[in-house]
């Protein structure tokens, strides 16, 4: 069928964007969010406050608006004098947004660890870094995995927001084909593609979780 001759190559093109944005965002924002979580919990009031404001802004405004602001809005701020490229703007907006959400999840995870463990490590005279990286963090990761999984799957679908900057992801590909042929089939097709991606991710996340559930 004609529609698929056009749809499949364009979907593959679109997949490069969808998966590219997805991976780049995850790879950058997960480590970053652990740092932000620690900053948010910092004893230094000013640092904690600033991080809090950052999280408030990122969670309090739509990602679509953040994309528009970073790409178009910077131009209107005097004295900055440079503009981000389309792909730069996308990665920056997605990383900033997802880091805020993930940081709150990690903060919850770190907070859930019994204070006694920190004390025990102190008694054993383990360094603060060793305590965090080798004792606390592995337990945190284990606890926050279901919530992180939620965000990961939401991220797959949020990648479709890149349309506002004229970048063609798989949803945009479907829209193009749909308009050329005046048919609804492409939308059903990308719906299935999204489901497939989510199925693969769910499986990966399950494997990861069961790897961490060594005490059960």
């Amino acid at each position: 069928m004609n529609v698929f001759n056009m749809l499949i190559p364009m979907t593959i093109e679109g997949l490069r964007i969808t998966i590219g944005v997805f991976l780049a965002t995850l790879v950058i924002s997960i480590p970053l969010s652990i740092i932000v979580a620690k900053l948010r919990m910092s004893k230094n009031k000013i640092i904690a406050k600033i991080t809090g404001i950052y999280i408030y802004i990122m969670r309090g405004t739509p990602l679509l608006l953040q994309l528009m602001f970073i790409f178009f809005g910077f131009h209107y701020i005097p004295l900055i004098g440079f503009a981000f490229g389309r792909y730069q703007a996308i990665i920056i907006a997605f990383v900033l947004n997802y880091t805020a959400y993930l940081a709150e999840i990690f903060r919850g995870g770190i907070g859930s660890i019994d204070i006694g463990q920190f004390e025990a490590c102190q008694v054993l005279s383990l360094s603060k870094r060793f305590t965090f990286m080798k004792v606390i963090l592995p337990q945190v990761v284990k606890n926050v995995m279901p919530s992180i999984g939620n965000e990961v799957i939401t991220l797959v679908k949020d990648t479709s927001l890149v349309y506002i900057l004229g970048v063609a992801d798989i949803l945009k590909a479907a829209k193009s084909v749909s308009n050329t042929y005046s048919t609804f089939i492409p939308y059903i097709f990308v719906g299935i593609v999204y489901l497939l991606i989510t199925a693969i991710l769910t499986k990966l996340l399950d494997n990861f979780e069961s790897k961490f559930s060594y005490y059960r």
Partner: peptide, 30 residues
Amino acid sequence: MKIFNKRSFKLLLLMTIIASLLSGCSSEVG
């Protein structure tokens, strides 16, 4: 705050590099 010593600094540096790489290969428009 002790956690932010050399190693996390390296991590931060690495991420900055990744970020700049990403931006480097995508600035053909705009």
